[in-house]
Design a protein around this nucleic acid. Structure first.
Lengths: 191, 191
DNA sequence: ACCTGAACACCGTTCAAGT
DNA sequence: ACCTGAACACCGTTCAAGT
């Protein structure tokens, strides 16, 4: 079900991921989907969580906060780039409050000692989350626009060409993320 | 035209700002709008620019880069909060590349000496833009959800109640923005 | 130059009724 | 428990034809 939705997302993009398309790809009528999901947004939230799933299985190394934040941000971007329109989809699910940012859990709750951490840590997670999602959203849109510009036709872009995109942008992304995370050093407890 | 669109946006929210609704409010048939705009996205881009317009008339004081960045970020949030769903609308226009971030122009082009500034300044503008838009998007959504929760009914929320919202969130917003802008001090030329 | 009429190809969601 | 049939109330966009 979620897998079928992910396939449509990757093949046809978010605007074409409709309840009717999904139903058809499952050999079922549109109304049937409402036995499993309350609404399309609920379905999209589940898809978002699946896209973010790799964040939870992978552990993040690094002893300083700003180092872990940096690695987490990079990980998040990788997840979003793995599917077409991944950033746009996750962006809206996050904004609607239907999905919690994996950056929050990784930087906050994952810690062994939840008491003695700086109160601004979660707040810093917000900064990283919003920047990464926003940047990747913009980046992914540009990449797809380019892909359309080159081929002319609108439908023969392979998911891979879009997903494995933009090693070019990687550098800029990293340097800004480092800039943000640099600010976190001031919150660091004495190591 | 744009004014009519802004009124629908503020009264009914982004999901109800359709070409058909807009046409009706202008006493015209939907097709007529396509004589003025190539597409709905182009119309929404113009609306976004109108929402961001106050950014261009107001000048930003402050001699250090990180101080100007901070003030610009606060200004941007104010613009987005001035209309219902303002952040969501501007977020997508920015991502689609149909609108340029006012933060970029304020921190970069506005300067008298465009040559001798750090190459990371524009890059820093990205960080501020993405954070502010993402944060405000999330914030605006929460505020509206609350408003719905309190009244129960879906339609009797005044635009003002939504627009003038969340002095509560203001503190958190500011501290994270300060965190980001703090990183900019490292780029500062010697004052 | 500006707009209508009318169509085309879609949407999300609900809900009685079937199995 | 799970799904269909069929409807309800919408969409964005195009384009001949009117004025």
């Amino acid at each position: 079900m979620i897998e079928a939705a992910l396939r449509i997302l990757d093949d046809q993009g978010l605007p074409n991921l409709s309840m009717r398309q999904l139903a058809e790809s499952l050999g079922v009528r549109p109304g049937a989907l409402y036995w499993y999901f309350d609404s399309k947004q609920a379905l999209l939230a589940d898809v978002s969580r699946r896209i973010l799933a790799p964040m939870y299985s992978a552990t993040v190394e690094g002893d300083s906060l700003h180092e872990r934040a940096l690695r987490t941000g990079v990980q998040l971007r990788d997840c979003l780039l793995a599917y077409r329109d991944g950033a746009e989809l996750v962006s809206s699910s996050l904004a609607l409050g239907l999905v919690v940012s994996p950056v929050h859990t990784k930087l906050g709750i994952d810690q062994q000692k939840p008491e003695d951490q700086h109160p601004l840590v979660l707040t810093a997670a917000e900064a990283v989350t919003h920047f990464v999602v926003g940047f990747t959203f913009h980046e992914q849109q540009r990449t797809q626009a380019e892909a359309l510009g080159v081929t002319g036709a609108a439908d023969d872009i392979t998911p891979q060409a879009v997903a494995n995109s933009s090693p070019a942008q990687g550098g800029e992304f990293r340097s800004v993320l480092e800039l943000i995370c640099h600010g976190l050093q001031t919150l660091e407890p004495s190591p």
